[in-house]
């Protein structure tokens, strides 16, 4: 295969996206850790690093536009740039949710612990796992794996329902816990949203591979 100028730039684009993906995973992981280990310093680090993530998003946007304008990619090249350009803001939003979780952790960590966090970390673990696999599937352009991951989102949705009911019960039993419980409820909601976003990434993986838009279609 001959060497093309565009290849260099596409490689750069891929590297930047994977770096952003790694940073996002780390943010999510740390946010959950700051909650479970009641480590507010760690939470503040997450808030700090979100600024870097935002910068990276802008960088990738700029590079994508540049490639589109100057290299005029077609076929797979075109789908690759489009996918990257669409996955990037999704990752940024996942990172935002991680930041929100870290925010919540800082608030809750000053209060006594309501309950042992079992479901929430498991749920977050699940979401983080999905995110990592989705990014792998992007690298290897594995459409089948991406379809698998999309199905896993149901598990997170189910966990969310369980945690939701549990927290509501706690609030009813002991109204003084409402503030903390509400924060935890937000955390659960954030994780649930992350699951949805990972699903979107997987749909773009399928587009990259098969040029098929499976979003909003009943068939996967």
């Amino acid at each position: 295969m001959e060497h093309r100028i565009i290849d260099q730039q596409l490689d750069l684009l891929r590297d930047k996206l994977l770096l952003l993906g790694g940073m996002t995973e780390k943010a999510l992981h740390r946010a959950m850790q700051s909650l479970t280990e009641r480590d507010s310093d760690l939470a503040r680090k997450v808030l700090e690093e979100d600024k870097i993530i935002n910068q990276m998003e802008l960088e990738i946007d700029r590079l994508s536009v540049e490639i589109l304008a100057l290299q005029q990619p077609a076929a797979h090249d075109l789908r690759f740039v489009i996918s990257v350009a669409k996955i990037t803001p999704i990752l940024e939003r996942i990172a935002d949710h991680a930041t929100n979780i870290a925010d919540a952790a800082i608030r809750i960590n000053d209060e006594p612990q309501l309950k042992s966090y079992i479901d929430l970390p498991a749920m977050a673990q699940n979401a983080a796992e999905m995110l990592r696999t989705a990014l792998d599937a992007f690298t290897t352009e594995d459409a089948a794996l991406s379809r698998e991951i999309i199905k896993q989102d149901q598990k997170i949705d189910a966990s969310y329902k369980r945690v939701f009911n549990e927290l509501i019960e706690i609030m009813i039993d002991n109204p003084s816990t409402t503030a903390s419980a509400a924060q935890l409820l937000f955390v659960a909601k954030h994780i649930e949203r992350i699951g949805d976003y990972v699903k979107d990434i997987c749909e773009l993986n399928v587009y990259l591979r098969e040029a098929a838009f499976i979003k909003h279609s009943p068939k996967i």
Binding site: M1, R4, I6, P73, A74, A75, D77
Partner: peptide
């Protein structure tokens, strides 16, 4: 076709 239109 892909190789041609993407300049490979």
């Amino acid at each position: 076709t892909e190789d041609y239109i993407t300049g490979r």
